[in-house]
């Protein structure tokens, strides 16, 4: 399968890339890892006139800690997230999630920025970012803009990014002690999209009271979904079987999966409930071991 012809640009600086976006507007697409975009171009679902390859732009592939914030460059490959010691220390959820994203070769190319900017509710990082309360940094002609993750996803393949902006960094607050995180997706086989996926981050105080909870859901809604009622069901009390069951129930009610080859709507709701329970337990276990 061959893509429709396009003009290829490979700028060496961010400002050059942004100038190209200003010039070409929405006729242009950004090429990052390319493992969502190139397949869509080969199928001619995507037919950009201009392709702006940002892989040669330096300074976009870091994983670093600064002032209590973890900063991840948008061009950071999934394989680098999977093996980062800094991420393992603060956020075991990344190792959970990246191991389940596509396969090793795809993870050598795919980037966290692309995974988010694609705006696909079936991708795995969006739910993780919801659970971790991330902020997306977009850079455009006017400079940088911080977009809270809850305001980032608009609809099917639609995000808050403007045609002249590039997603350049993800910022995640590093939580205090007593925090644990976990992600799992049910998939039919390696490389498949999630039948359902659940990301959880919890913080417990010394007496075992849950003081913060983030829960994100993958591929069970038109957009990546924050399970807000589930979070509220946990906060302010100890984690008990009753509160976990309540959180699972709310998540299965509040999502809106569609029936497809991966399963019926009813099955997917049931799996959301199961995964919410399991990921809460895993996050609690990890919170205790830190």
């Amino acid at each position: 399968m061959i893509a429709q012809p396009f003009q290829y640009e490979a700028p060496n600086t961010l400002s050059e890339a942004i100038s190209l976006l200003q010039k070409y507007g929405d006729e242009a697409k950004i090429l990052s890892g390319g493992h969502s975009l190139i397949p869509m171009m080969k199928l001619r679902f995507a037919t950009p006139e201009y392709l702006i390859d940002i892989n040669g732009i330096p300074g976009l592939s870091h994983i670093k800690e600064e002032g209590g914030i973890l900063k991840i460059g948008a061009l950071t490959r999934e394989a680098d997230l999977e093996h980062s010691d800094l991420l393992k220390k603060h956020f075991p959820i990344f190792a959970d999630a990246t191991k389940l994203i596509a396969d090793p070769q795809v993870r050598n190319r795919g980037t966290i920025g692309g995974n988010l900017a694609h705006g696909d509710a079936a991708n795995d990082h969006p739910a993780v970012m919801l659970a971790l309360n991330a902020t997306v940094i977009a850079t455009g002609p006017e400079g940088e803009r911080a977009i809270p993750i809850d305001e980032f996803f608009f609809g099917f393949y639609m995000t808050a990014l403007q045609p002249e902006e590039i997603l350049t960094e993800i910022q995640i607050p590093i939580p205090g002690s007593g925090t644990g995180s976990a992600y799992h997706k049910l998939e039919r086989k390696v490389g498949d999209y999630a039948t359902a996926g659940v990301a959880v981050q919890l913080t417990l105080d010394k007496s075992g009271i849950c003081t913060a909870a983030g829960i994100g859901l993958t591929n069970v809604n038109a957009t990546p979904l924050r399970a807000a009622r589930s979070e509220q069901a946990l906060i302010g009390k100890p984690i008990t079987e009753a509160s976990v069951a309540e959180a699972a129930q709310y998540a299965s009610e509040d999502c809106s999966p569609s029936s497809d080859l991966r399963g019926s709507e009813e099955y997917k709701r049931a799996m959301v409930a199961v995964l919410v329970k399991r990921m809460i337990h895993k996050a609690v276990e990890r919170a205790g071991s830190k």
Partner: peptide, 25 residues
């Protein structure tokens, strides 16, 4: 479609699926 891996090569030492990359890259 980047599923089967038959087209895997090493690009600067990293295994990639060459059906899902452009030659210009």
């Amino acid at each position: 479609t980047s599923s089967c891996g038959a087209c895997t090569i090493l690009l600067d030492g990293k295994s990639v699926k060459s059906c899902t990359m452009l030659a210009v890259q």
